[in-house]
C-alpha cells in the first residue's frame, strides 16, 4: 500500500487515489494535422519506464485534484510530487534493464 503525499492534502493511502499514467503527454492542439501514426503515438504508445517515471495521480477520494508524482516503478520509492503545471523536479537517474 503506497503512501502518496498529495500536494494538497498530505500523505494518504494509495486506495484514496486513482492512477493517470505517464505525465507530460500533452494532447495535440490540432489532431487533424497528425498522421495516423502520430495520433496513435499520442493515444497509445508509452515508454512504460522501468525506473523513475513522472506520472499522474488524482486524489479521487479526497480533494479530487490531479497532480504529478516522480516514482520509481521498480522500488516504488516516491522521489517528488508536484502540482499540475509546475516544473519537473530533478530526479535520480535509474538504469534498470
Amino acid at each position: 500500500m503506497l503512501l502518496i503525499p498529495c500536494p494538497y492534502c498530505g500523505e494518504r493511502d494509495e486506495t484514496e487515489f486513482s492512477y493517470g499514467g505517464e505525465a507530460h503527454i500533452e494532447r495535440p492542439k490540432e489532431p487533424d494535422k497528425l498522421s495516423d501514426a502520430e495520433w496513435a503515438d499520442y493515444v497509445f504508445m508509452r515508454p512504460n519506464s522501468k525506473g523513475v517515471l513522472l506520472e499522474r495521480w488524482v486524489h479521487s477520494h479526497g480533494c479530487r485534484r490531479w497532480f504529478n508524482v516522480a516514482r520509481d516503478t521498480l522500488t516504488y520509492k516516491i522521489h517528488a510530487v508536484y502540482k499540475m503545471g509546475e516544473k519537473r523536479p530533478r530526479v535520480p537517474k535509474t538504469d534498470y534493464v
Binding site: 486513482s18 493517470g20 500533452e26 494532447r27 499522474r56 488524482v58 479521487s60 479530487r64 485534484r65 490531479w66 499540475m84 503545471g85
Partner: peptide, 13 residues
C-alpha cells in the same frame, strides 16, 4: 465525472 475532471485539470487548466 472523472473523465471531465481529468481533461479540465490536466489538458485545459
Amino acid at each position: 465525472l472523472a473523465h471531465l475532471e481529468e481533461y479540465i485539470q490536466t489538458e485545459w487548466p
